[in-house]
Amino acid sequence: MSPSTLRRALTFSVLINLGVLTALGWQKLAANGLPMPSGAPTTLSRELQLSTSQLQRWHDAEAPFLAQLHASGADIQKHRDALIQAIFGPSVDHTLIDTAQTKIAELQSTQQRLVIEQLLRERKILDPEQRERLAQILVQQPVGPSGFERMHRE
């Protein structure tokens, strides 16, 4: 094979690999709860019967919230994994266990504040009937941010 043919084959291979990686990355972002495209209706927005202007405001408020919630969930996961390793590693590291436990509690508190701030933003967007409906839906959800996040993505 000539050097130019080899170069073309290598370039073609790199382009295919980049395309595959881009497609996988895009799927991963969508699957990991990053914000929906602005204006795209969700199960929750349909359930609340948001008007067009409410839907736009809803998504504008929701996008940064979901990104922050996703990032804090990833941080909690990292510290949870460290906690599990400290508990089940070859030797028990009580200092690492205490540190991870404290960090997880701090991150969960921050996550709770994020959720409350988001609910207050959503309250301003909704009319009284929609607020009552959202309150009913939230009461029926499992405790924790994962149910809240899933509800916003669907």
Rank of each mutant, 00 (worst) to 15 (best):
L83W: 02
E132K: 06
A30T: 04
R123I: 00
P142E: 02
S72Q: 14
N32P: 02
Q27S: 04
I97R: 11
T102D: 15
S91E: 15
E62K: 10
A67K: 06
H70E: 11
W58T: 02
L6I: 15
D93S: 09
R57F: 03
Q49H: 14
R7A: 15
F12T: 07
L114W: 06
G25L: 02
D127W: 01
G147Q: 13
R80M: 10
D98H: 13
Q56S: 11
L120Q: 04
L120F: 01
L126G: 00
Q49E: 12
T11L: 13
V115W: 02
Q49A: 12
L6G: 13
S4Q: 14
I104F: 10
L134R: 07
H152G: 11
P64C: 02
E122W: 08
S72G: 09
K124F: 00
R150P: 08
A9G: 11
H79L: 10
E122D: 07
P142C: 01
G25R: 00
R113Q: 12
A40M: 10
S4W: 14
L55K: 07
I116N: 06
N32Q: 11
A23D: 04
G147R: 11
D93M: 11
A71M: 08
D127I: 05
L18K: 03
L66P: 05
Q68Y: 04
R133Q: 05
G33F: 03
P145A: 15
A40C: 04
L55V: 10
H70L: 09
Q85K: 10
S45M: 06
L18D: 06
G144P: 04
P142Q: 03
I87A: 10
L6W: 14
P37W: 01
P3W: 12
H79M: 09
L10E: 14
S51C: 09
A31D: 07
A100T: 14
L119D: 04
D81P: 01
V143C: 01
D81M: 09
L134M: 12
A31Q: 05
K78L: 11
F88A: 13
H94E: 12
T102L: 11
A23K: 04
S2Y: 13
Q27H: 03
L21F: 09
A67T: 05
W58N: 01
T110I: 11
M36F: 08
V20K: 03
E132R: 04
R80H: 07
